[in-house]
Write a protein that binds this DNA or RNA. Structure first.
Lengths: 110, 110
DNA sequence: AGCAGACATTCGTATATATGCATCTACTTA
DNA sequence: TAAGTAGATGCATATATACGAATGTCTGCT
């Protein structure tokens, strides 16, 4: 019986639970970018990028700014970047410990 | 065309993308707990808790320690907690800015 | 050995998510 | 106002995830 905060928290995490969206965020660390630029940089079709951006937007992870014909997307809160950075560190540490192997063999018993 | 690191990163995020799992992690901040304790604390059926724990285990988010009949679960890396804390802060800031409303009306144009 | 308690796993079903393709809309500029 | 371009949306399908109910597996005790 999860409470509201946990649900929002989970939604936020779920929002980051896509490799493409992670790469979008990584790309946006260097500053605002348009959909085209992202599409080109990640080599992902434009409608697909658009949809992922829509998800990120809905959760308030990215913001939009119109400039002429283009729409520039940016990261809404630097803490998002920080959180991602921490998680990446966790990953790195796991890899160092050879978790890559353990991942497949760890069901606690049997 | 997402790379391997981004995929692992996304998997880690996806792992946190469940309200129940978030609450499990919150509960584990106070120290190790058994499946029963978690099941009781969250008011979620045991097999369900077990499944979520299995997911967390696979991704190396939690660790297990057997003690007699019980299996104690704990958070494997304090950085996980830190990352969660950051994300919760993002949530709080969003709520303060009235994002709760904007979430429903933000499709950038139309 | 047999039983009971603590976890794990399997299966079926309901629901969500991702993607490609085609299409549509809204600006901007000529 | 017509054209062109950036971006969004709808639809269909494939795939993944969540949960309940039932069942399986250890382990410790008597």
């Amino acid at each position: 019986m999860p409470d509201r905060i946990s649900e929002l928290h989970a939604e936020l995490c779920k929002t980051l639970g896509s490799a493409i969206r992670i790469e979008i965020l990584n790309a946006l660390r260097g500053g605002e970018k348009t959909v085209r630029e992202l599409s080109a940089a990640l080599r992902v079709r434009q409608p697909n990028v658009s949809q992922h951006l829509a998800v990120l937007r809905q959760r308030g992870v990215v913001t939009t700014r119109k400039d002429g014909v283009n729409i520039y997307y940016g990261i809404s809160n630097p803490k998002i970047t920080q959180a991602c950075e921490l998680m990446k560190q966790v990953l790195v540490e796991q890899l160092k410990e050879g978790m890559e192997l353990t991942r497949l063999t760890s069901p606690a018993r049997r």
